[in-house]
Amino acid sequence: MKYAYTILYVESVSETIEFYEKAFGFNRKFLTPESDYGELISGETTIAFASIELGNSNFKRGFEKISKSQKPFGVELVFTTENIEKDFQSAINFGATEFEPITEKPWGQKVGYLRDNNGFLIEICTPMKTE
């Protein structure tokens, strides 16, 4: 078995794809003609977005939609970078909001938290040092 996708359900797939392209530098892999599903080129695991409507058609019992006015879900996407201060600020410049400022952890890793244009949590961090 292989972990292949993370799919976030959003109000506007095309706006979310554009946000991730600008804020984090990812490239678009795929967007349906209906703009109800799209994917980013993000490494081995694909980050994908699907419309709320598509989610409603998939999940007959419903699901909890993200809200920027509520606390975020206890799930995050994590992006590593060697240029954390620059990339963290760049994401804010393109519409991300700071959730927790960059701090250095006791093991030496720098970590900061943002919310994307939908309200999902994004962790920006330096790679873990291996010895």
Results as ranks from 00 to 15, higher is better:
residue 2 K to D: 03
residue 48 A to P: 01
residue 108 G to R: 10
residue 13 V to A: 04
residue 23 A to W: 00
residue 37 Y to L: 01
residue 79 F to S: 09
residue 72 P to Q: 09
residue 71 K to C: 09
residue 25 G to D: 01
residue 56 N to G: 00
residue 93 N to A: 14
residue 65 K to W: 06
residue 84 I to M: 08
residue 81 T to S: 14
residue 26 F to Q: 04
residue 103 T to G: 05
residue 68 K to C: 09
residue 14 S to G: 04
residue 53 E to R: 11
residue 32 T to K: 15
residue 21 E to I: 13
residue 106 P to A: 03
residue 110 K to I: 04
residue 28 R to A: 05
residue 29 K to P: 09
residue 21 E to Q: 12
residue 100 E to A: 14
residue 24 F to D: 12
residue 17 I to H: 02
residue 79 F to V: 15
residue 50 A to G: 14
residue 61 R to M: 09
residue 12 S to G: 02
residue 59 F to E: 10
residue 100 E to Y: 14
residue 1 M to Q: 10
residue 17 I to E: 01
residue 81 T to C: 11
residue 89 Q to K: 15
residue 78 V to H: 12
residue 46 T to E: 07
residue 77 L to A: 11
residue 31 L to Y: 06
residue 51 S to Y: 05
residue 68 K to E: 12
residue 72 P to S: 08
residue 110 K to P: 00
residue 21 E to M: 06
residue 54 L to K: 10
residue 9 Y to N: 02
residue 105 K to T: 13
residue 44 E to Q: 02
residue 111 V to Y: 06
residue 101 P to Y: 13
residue 79 F to R: 04
residue 98 E to I: 11
residue 98 E to V: 02
residue 110 K to W: 08
residue 71 K to I: 13
residue 1 M to L: 08
residue 19 F to W: 06
residue 104 E to Y: 09
residue 29 K to C: 10
residue 110 K to N: 09
residue 16 T to M: 04
residue 40 L to R: 07
residue 51 S to H: 13
residue 36 D to M: 00
residue 11 E to P: 03
residue 85 E to V: 15
residue 74 G to I: 12
residue 35 S to N: 14
residue 33 P to F: 04
residue 42 S to F: 06
residue 105 K to M: 14
residue 8 L to K: 00
residue 102 I to D: 07
residue 30 F to D: 04
residue 58 N to R: 10
residue 64 E to D: 13
residue 35 S to M: 08
residue 17 I to D: 05
residue 68 K to R: 15
residue 27 N to K: 15
residue 25 G to I: 03
residue 108 G to K: 07
residue 75 V to D: 02
residue 5 Y to R: 05
residue 37 Y to I: 02
residue 3 Y to V: 02
residue 111 V to C: 03
residue 13 V to Q: 01
residue 84 I to C: 10
residue 111 V to E: 09
residue 6 T to E: 03
residue 92 I to W: 09
